[in-house]
Amino acid sequence: MARKRGLGFVGALWRVNLLSAMEYRVPFIMQLGGMMLNNVIYFAFWVLFFDRFEEVQGWTLRDMMLLFAVVASGLGLAMMLFGNCRAIARIVAAGDLDRYLALPRPVLLHVLASRSSVPSMGDFVFGLIWFVLAGDVTAAHVLRFLLAVVLSACTFTASLVLANSLVFWLRRSELLADHFMNAMITFSLYPGTLFDGAARVFLFTVVPAGLTGALPVEMLRDFNAATLGWLCVGTALLAAFALLAFQVGLRRYESGSAIVARI
């Protein structure tokens, strides 16, 4: 039987994830709309804040809109395409990696693409709308924004894979992975100029939220090759570490005998 060895299966997984999400029409629409509304309410705080103070160390309300646009669309894109990046610890702890290992595809890519989060579609759309509302919708700026979103999505995915891969050594690290994700989102949504010194180092290493929010917005505010270079290098390094951690950890995988009623 002739076989295609490309990555077409990833598209098939995304398609079936979408079909699965749309199987329940009302919850689909509610989750999508609910997440957008949630983001709007969250942003209302910054509207009130900037009503009192014109700027925070050089950041204006428009910069915050760009920050929310990049982070929401980046996180949304990551969770839409690679929704299992936040669930690897649970999958491994439950022994559910078996079903991916029994199939002829790269395990990590297969795991990541096997789930799409519906609320994250709301995040993604919210980010696009916020970008348009922030103004400056020129072709060059749109291209830079899309690049920022893609890099942010890669960073979110890689850092969550890295954090979730701890499960191979700790055996139970689901809560730790959840806290890490919350920290990533929280620290991503602060103005980049708010932190310096050790805090800034922390935000580009331990919890690399600087790469998902502050630095991409820096690139949008004042585009230059150096910022883009740092962003690309940081994302590539993180991705390499994540891949390495998962592959090394995979050798420690012990499966399990839990009875799963459904997937």
Partner: peptide
């Protein structure tokens, strides 16, 4: 059809 794609079948 998804498994067809996973196994590389057209």
């Amino acid at each position: 059809h998804v498994y067809g794609a996973i196994y590389g079948l057209d």
